[in-house]
Nucleic acid binder design. Structure first.
Lengths: 117, 117
DNA sequence: GTTGATATTGACAGTCATTGTCATTAGATC
DNA sequence: GATCTAATGACAATGACTGTCAATATCAAC
């Protein structure tokens, strides 16, 4: 199953399910959800929640990073921002918050899509 | 309607609807959704998408800012990070992305809740 | 005050991502 | 092959959100 994260772009559960079905795999939607949730819990894939509330998944490098995602085609660039991490920690500490994590994602339109559309 | 954003914490549409009904207002769920969406479009309220995909709304200051939200009680601190904005713009430009916006929220546990729990 | 055009409202049904259920299936062990 | 157990997949259920549409409010013109 992990071998099927060959897409290298963020995909929703349903898209992955369709993809698998069209490849001939007879796999159930429930199993896709179960597997993705399990993989996400084990930090084997990254999850982000899109603006419309749908969760999308992608195979990623193990290090902490964020994403620059094309709204149109899903192409994804992994980006790092050590300054942001430090800023987030500092802000949390100043306000007495603990167990802080942060969500930071960039959504835009990539070169290919902006020239096409 | 805008006067009912007196709660000062992030609330979902449904929570706001319940709140209004319990106050005796005979307001429909559709109207709550419509109004919140309109207010959000007019930048009168801030929207963030929680990790479970539910959208929550809050009356906020007009300037661009982000939020440090207590996972337990919902208490919210508005925070600013000009450095983050600059970083996001730079990253987007370097990768040729346009129409970029970013989601950045910090979730943690505030002092009161961490000492209580 | 009444009429009529127009916009807003709210009850309700529909949509869609996600989760729960449960009988069936696959795989291991005897 | 029999049996036990865990994983699977078809399908129903949930819940947030959106669409529909008749009823109501608003308001200008008469």
């Amino acid at each position: 199953m992990a071998a099927l994260d060959e897409v290298d772009e963020f995909r929703s559960s349903q898209e992955l399910h369709d993809y698998l079905r069209h490849k001939g795999e007879n796999v159930g939607l429930s199993t896709v959800y179960r597997t993705l949730t399990a993989l996400a819990a084990a930090d084997e894939v990254d999850v982000i929640v899109r603006e419309d509330g749908e969760s999308i998944y992608r195979r990623c490098s193990g290090t902490h990073h964020h994403h620059l995602v094309c709204r149109s085609c899903g192409r994804t660039v992994e980006v790092e921002g050590p300054a942001v991490e430090r800023w987030a920690d500092a802000v949390a500490r100043e306000n007495g918050f603990t167990e802080v994590n942060h969500t930071l994602e960039l959504f835009g339109v990539c070169t290919a899509c902006s020239s096409a559309g």
